[in-house]
């Protein structure tokens, strides 16, 4: 029998995720059997959705670069849609919003160029869109609520388009010398660690959670969940070190960075939802809510991870 470590990193990772999903499904079935009085339908729906998300994500990452780019662009588009729908926009913002959505394919176009245009990727939204958006709004001649609209629209673009697009750019990173790591494996590492940390924080919080961290923003976030989730996600990350160029110490450091960033992303999006007065951003993923409810932590973790790798591992 071939040892699992001889397989390609992508296949190895696929098998690992499959294993995690099987364990999760079995655990839910056992829970349902053990406590017939309790309703586990939401948990079951969540696990089912994870199967689908994992399958779609793997297909998008593995098949081709174009497909991956389209997938991440669609993700940004959907997240931005969810955010903008909940904003109190003015009728006068129509043209600025058209421009905002137009910025999504353009931002991903810089990544899709061969070679990707890093300079433009990194300033298009933070600089040019920042300048252009209010100018488009000036042309609509409505000054009441101007600053509010300009700020909230650009903020959404920064987080959901600029932030998330870092994952797509990361994907284009070439193989890092003397390792098996490349853009694809690094994206898998990032997403697996951050999402596992989300799930583990939830599990630790549900079982042992006592002391709330930010009760005014998110009553479900506890110190026990935070510490337990991040510590266990860090341990797990050691198991998929084969996807990265990192040493053991560095793996722990990096996974600490991205899980804490992910926590911050989740907390920020909780505050946004509080402000909008909604429980979820949407309903596209059964049991999870909207796209933003699932990628909130990645919006923060992706840029942090991206710049770490870029600074230390590319020329």
């Amino acid at each position: 029998m071939t040892s699992i470590t001889n397989l390609s990193p992508l296949l190895q990772m696929g098998l690992l995720v499959l294993g995690v999903l099987v364990v999760a499904s079995v655990a839910v079935a056992v829970l349902q059997r053990a406590r017939p009085g309790k309703d586990f339908s939401e948990l079951a729906a969540r696990v089912r959705a994870w199967w689908i998300m994992a399958a779609v994500f793997f297909a998008a990452i593995v098949v081709s670069n174009r497909l991956s780019l389209g997938f991440f662009a669609l993700m940004s588009f959907w997240a931005l849609k969810e955010y903008v729908t909940l904003l109190k926009t003015r009728p006068a913002d129509h043209h600025a919003l058209v421009l905002t959505f137009l910025a999504v394919p353009i931002q991903y176009l810089w990544i899709g160029l061969d070679p990707p245009w890093y300079g433009m990727f990194i300033i298009f939204i933070p600089v040019y869109m920042l300048l252009a958006l209010p100018v488009r709004m000036v042309l609509s001649k409505e000054t009441k609520g101007f600053v509010e609209s300009a700020s909230q629209i650009h903020w959404g673009m920064m987080i959901f388009v600029f932030g998330l697009s870092h994952m797509a750019y990361l994907l284009t990173f070439p193989t890092i010398a003397d390792t098996a790591a490349n853009g694809r494996t690094l994206v898998l590492f990032l997403v697996f660690v951050v999402e596992m940390s989300d799930v583990l924080q939830y599990i630790w919080g549900k079982t042992l959670g006592r002391h709330k961290i930010i009760p005014a923003v998110s009553p479900n976030k506890t110190w026990e969940g935070f510490i337990g989730g991040i510590a266990s996600a860090m341990l797990l990350s050691l198991g998929i070190r084969f996807l990265t160029p990192f040493s053991i110490k560095e793996t722990l450091l990096v996974s600490f960075l991205i899980t804490v960033a992910g926590f911050c992303g989740g907390a920020v999006m909780s505050a946004v939802k509080r402000d909008f007065g909604v429980k979820d951003f949407g309903s596209v993923i059964p049991g999870h809510g909207g796209m933003l409810d699932r990628v909130d932590s990645l919006c923060y973790a992706a840029p942090v991870f991206f710049h770490y790798v870029r600074y230390f591992y590319t020329k």
Partner: peptide, 18 residues
């Protein structure tokens, strides 16, 4: 709900509000 926000009277390009 929101149709008039997505494509109001007098506009030709819709904004994808849900």
């Amino acid at each position: 709900v929101n149709m008039g926000r997505s494509l109001p009277k007098g506009e030709f390009i819709p904004v994808p509000f849900f």
